[in-house]
């Protein structure tokens, strides 16, 4: 059997703000095509870990490796900037608050980066925009501005924008947390489609049902460490750690009440 390196590898990730340790020596791997959910209470470090993967929140120690290349390489400033911009083109990210560019149309939100960074032609850009927007069911809004869209629509455009760079890996940072409940489903649907297409995804979420439904593996974090990880059937049904049980009891009962 040939030894293959994991697709995403986080080694001894540490992050602290002053004396506050947010990430305490976290190591984990994600395989190509795998879909991983990171769950945990707020302040557990899950978003920080996600944002460390594309170096948006640089680690204070440890390594992030994507497909054999270290993302957070120690390089002189200029070289590092070149390197990280290159790496980030391969890592799509979707934010809780969408962060669409309000001064650009839906089309230009999607193709601005490919045009600028890959130098694709106007025709190719138009095709790319249509293709990506059709994929998230937003083609008919191509000429709209973000201010004219609902939250769910904005998030779908934000996903299309990230996918237009043809990333190898997608990061979702509480992509549905800011949405009205009735708009969550349309975004989840798009993420499920991506899952069926075997996009590698790391998803920070509060939605246990979605995580159980879509993800291959669930990672429970608390206090800057990975407390428990495993397939959703085990983590959700049969957690071994008391902290996981505690968290799930609160979250699942909350979920039951909402229903």
């Amino acid at each position: 059997m040939t030894e293959t390196r994991p697709f995403v590898e986080i080694r001894h990730a540490k992050k602290s703000y002053g004396s506050l340790e947010v990430l305490k020596d976290i190591s984990l791997t994600v395989d190509r095509g795998e879909i991983v959910a990171i769950i945990g209470p707020s302040g557990s470090g899950k978003s920080t870990l996600l944002r460390a993967i594309n170096d948006l929140d640089p680690l204070t120690g440890g390594e992030v490796i994507l497909d054999g290349t270290q993302v957070n390489k120690a390089l002189p400033h200029r070289q590092y900037e070149k390197h990280i911009n290159q790496m980030r083109q391969q890592i799509g990210m979707v934010f809780q608050h969408f962060n669409l560019f309000p001064h650009l149309t839906v089309r230009d939100n999607v193709v601005m980066a490919p045009k600028l960074l890959k130098g694709i032609s106007e025709d190719a850009a138009q095709k790319l925009a249509e293709e990506q927007l059709a994929h998230v069911g937003m083609l008919e809004r191509i000429d709209y501005y973000p201010s004219q869209l609902s939250g769910g629509q904005k998030q779908r455009v934000a996903i299309a924008r990230a996918l237009a760079m043809k990333p190898k890996l997608m990061l979702f940072d509480e992509a549905t947390s800011a949405l009205d409940p009735e708009l969550v489903e349309e975004v989840n649907q798009v993420m499920k489609t991506l899952a069926q297409e075997h996009m590698t995804m790391i998803i920070v979420t509060h939605e246990m049902e979605f995580a159980a439904d879509v993800c291959d593996r669930v990672i429970f974090m608390d206090g800057g460490v990975v407390v428990e990880e495993g397939p959703p059937s085990i983590v959700f049904q049969n957690p071994t750690q008391p902290r996981t049980r505690d968290f799930l009891r609160k979250h699942l009962s909350q979920y039951e009440k909402e229903k």
């Binding site: 594309n54 948006l56 900037e81 911009n85 290159q86 980030r88 083109q89 890592i91 799509g92 990210m93 934010f95 608050h97 962060n99 669409l100 560019f101 309000p102 001064h103 601005m112 980066a113 600028l116 960074l117 934000a158 924008r161 990230a162 760079m165």
Partner: peptide, 25 residues
């Protein structure tokens, strides 16, 4: 701040993000 972050995440340099995203707004 999310505007700069979103632009940087797509692979834009700081300068590109300023010119294309932050300054126009």
């Amino acid at each position: 701040r999310g505007q700069m972050e979103a632009a940087r995440t797509l692979g834009l340099s700081r300068g590109q993000a300023l010119v294309r995203v932050v300054i126009p707004q």
